[in-house]
Design a protein around this nucleic acid. Structure first.
Lengths: 229, 229
DNA sequence: TCCTATTTGTAGTGATCGATACAGAAAGAG
DNA sequence: CTCTTTCTGTATCGATCACTACAAATAGGA
């Protein structure tokens, strides 16, 4: 029984939540795939980044990826699973550098400054859509896509958690006062960075974003010294 | 010639960009409207606020407004014009109090603090969707709705401009140093407030948002003293 | 009363949505 | 070679999209 009486748009998704990863060594069995899966995923990521999840249609995706719908579904299961993979690619590829800057700063403060200054340029770069995909591509939307928004919320929370951990590291290493409230500091800078994505979409320049960043960094010492309530 | 060969979804909008406002005194000519236009607009605003422009369908709207599609089109011309009116209602109704707090603060700093503290509670209030409609409801989307996003960008820019003007007023009134960079300060607090809408959607509490606000306000004096480059 | 003007609910319009059925093509396994 | 497996393009699927044609309903003006 494969009858589907429910609607397609609000109903159950295809039962494959993820496509089986290829065992890279073996050349597989049937007809080989006629396109580069990674390149197609990269193209999909760019479209999702630019338009957001819901406003990106399957025909937008197939056009950008250079394939037809059946190939997309064979390789990525469904639109939501494709978005999920695109998000993972984004985090791995686009998140690597800012994460490294944060980690490798001599102090927590220097790590934050380097990361924030990077974002100021990165968010307005013309090499890709403005702002951060994680912040912009699924903030609001239809109830049936709640799971996609929850995915993004989790990603944003993880990013904030990473900031908090960097501050805590600074506390153990002695460059941040032990009395500083790491959670509040992380929330403050996270909120600012997320706002910078909106600013980037509104046409802010690198110079303007940098001025915001420098302003926020000037608040560091006072914040760090303030301590918990 | 009224032929429409182009598609409906990407093509020309109905030619009425705005519906003629009723002369309130005269009881009009034909059959009277059977619903409260203001109440319907209020309901539409809530749905747009919650889901965003594109993810809100006409059937979502008619259901929330308690009317049928032809009544909606007779009263509001089209989806985009309805959104435009909903935005105006939002700015007038929801923006009045924070604007007043900003304006009536004894100093610019006090005005900012009162406004930001208000937002901390307002953005997580359960009386309405979390966060700010202007920030959230049309950030990304399809190319054919570019004009809607431009509308929101204009509104956000106007809000930032209002912050900048309040700082300049503080400079003329003497409570903000003349050397302070009003544009950068306005951009900084605007960016933070916009980020707070994301935080509110991610489930932040009033307490957490307040901590972010107090952190940002602690940076005021240093910022105001810093001056332009 | 009849005419005109406007709103109402019903029932659609063509287009696009996400997702698939199907048959032919292209590979390895036997 | 044949059999099996997988991918390919074509051509859809039913549902929903924003929007509207149409006639009944309801008001004022004559």
């Amino acid at each position: 029984m494969t009858v589907r009486s429910v609607t397609k748009r609000e109903g159950t998704k295809p039962d494959k939540t993820k496509v089986v990863p290829k065992a890279a060594g073996k050349p597989a069995r049937g007809r080989p795939r006629g396109f580069d899966r990674n390149a197609a995923l990269q193209a999909a990521m760019q479209v999702f980044w630019l338009r957001g999840y819901e406003a990106t249609s399957l025909s937008d995706l197939t056009k950008a990826m250079g394939i037809n719908a059946p190939s997309l579904y064979a390789a990525f299961a469904c639109k939501e699973a494709l978005f999920e993979e695109a998000l993972e690619l984004y985090e791995a590829a686009e998140g690597a550098l800012p994460q490294r800057l944060l980690r490798e700063g001599r102090t927590a403060k220097e790590g934050f400054a380097a990361m924030l200054r990077f974002y100021a340029g990165y968010y307005v770069s013309t090499d890709h859509p403005p702002g951060c995909m994680v912040v912009l591509s699924a903030i609001v939307g239809a109830p049936e896509n709640k799971s996609v928004r929850a995915l993004m919320t989790r990603s944003r929370r993880a990013a904030m958690e990473a900031l908090e951990q960097r501050i805590r590291r600074g506390q153990t290493e002695g460059d941040v006062p032990a009395t500083a409230d790491a959670a509040v500091m992380a929330a403050f800078y996270t909120t600012l960075v997320q706002g910078m994505s909106i600013q980037a979409r509104d046409g802010a320049t690198k110079k303007q974003l940098l001025a915001i960043v420098e302003t926020a960094m000037k608040a560091w010492d006072g914040m760090a010294a303030a301590g918990k309530p």
